[in-house]
């Protein structure tokens, strides 16, 4: 016999609805975790990625000895964590003699590994090392710009892949309205050679601020900055890719009704007051504020409150 199981309280229901597939998806969450051995460089890097993606990432700090994303059977617990935390971007760090300072960036589709890129981290400089020459710091969680430089991002398959993953990892939420004062940082990725990408974050400062004409911009490096050397990578399955790329085609926007915008008044709304529904009125027994005792007390001593107020 089948049993219908539904959440017992509303909080659980809300949580489940958050996890459910949606027509227009919210920003992907990131799971940051590590293997059995991690170097100091990687720990610092993971902390910084977690910081940069604050509010949209989950950091696991325990050692994970059975995660080997590229090997068959080594992704089981990774997929389980993805399901558990509802994360679809994965940053996995490990350090070994064969692959020192190893960082695996991956994406999942329906809580299964979609694609993977493995990079080695060289010349890592944390954000702290740039603190000295910082004039204005960008706001945390602002929408970043991206600058991809170099033909490698188009010609070399691995770099092309890495470009997409990096964009997905750091781009944040897709927004419709952008506040110009929130444009304050940029990720600069340069393909130095066929397998190396120089990655850094810079603060953006507009030199001339005027309403109409575009200001001249200036970049200051704020880190983290590093070289990413591509090692292994696994592209998504062609059929899976086709499924995953599906979008809601006819996303019909709801027509905005009864709202006018005026240069002088700003936003104006029209309100229609519907007929009064006497049938929907609350019953006297519904009013929780009127407990029986209090009502009776009122009946017996109607002036008691007044005298109290008058006395002082």
């Amino acid at each position: 016999m089948l049993k219908v199981k539904t959440p017992k309280n509303h909080r659980a229901l809300r949580e489940l609805e958050k996890h459910a597939p949606k027509l227009v998806e919210n920003a992907k969450k990131t799971l940051i975790l590590q293997g059995t051995k991690t170097s100091g460089v990687l720990k610092g890097l993971l902390a910084e990625i977690h910081h940069l993606k604050k509010g949209n990432s989950i950091r696991y700090t325990r050692k994970n000895d059975n995660i080997r994303p590229f090997e068959s059977g080594g992704e089981t617990s990774l997929e389980f964590f993805s399901l558990k935390t509802d994360c679809s971007l994965i940053v996995f760090a490990s350090h070994s003699k064969k692959r020192p300072n190893n960082l695996v960036l991956g994406r999942t589709y329906d809580h299964h590994i979609y694609d993977l890129v493995e990079v080695g981290v060289d010349n890592f400089k944390p954000m702290e090392s740039f603190l000295g020459d910082l004039k204005v710091s960008p706001i945390l969680g602002s929408k970043p710009l991206f600058a991809f430089i170099g033909e490698g991002f188009e010609n070399v398959e691995e770099l092309k892949h890495l470009k997409e993953v990096l964009l997905e990892l750091f781009r944040g939420e897709v927004v419709e309205n952008l506040n110009l004062s929130g444009v304050d940082r940029v990720y600069v990725c340069t393909a130095v050679n066929s397998n190396t990408v120089f990655f850094t974050q810079c603060a953006v400062r507009g030199l001339k601020k005027s309403g109409t004409a575009a200001p001249r911009v200036e970049l200051t490096e704020i880190g983290p900055s590093m070289d990413l050397v591509v090692r292994r990578h696994r592209l998504p399955n062609e059929s899976l890719k086709k499924v995953a790329m599906k979008t809601a085609l006819d996303r019909s926007k709801k027509k905005e009704k009864n709202i006018l915008r005026d240069a002088v008044h700003g936003k104006l709304g029209k309100i229609y007051i519907p007929d009064q529904q006497i049938g929907g009125m609350t019953l006297t027994s519904d009013v929780k504020g009127l407990k029986r005792e209090r009502r009776e007390a009122k009946k017996n001593f109607p002036a008691s409150k007044k005298t109290k107020l008058d006395s002082p």
């Binding site: 998806e25 679809s88 419709e176």
Partner: peptide
């Protein structure tokens, strides 16, 4: 406030 267009870079969905 600037009204941004839809992204043109196609990225995979998270869930079906």
């Amino acid at each position: 406030i600037i009204k941004l267009p839809q992204p043109t870079t196609k990225l995979p969905r998270e869930k079906p």
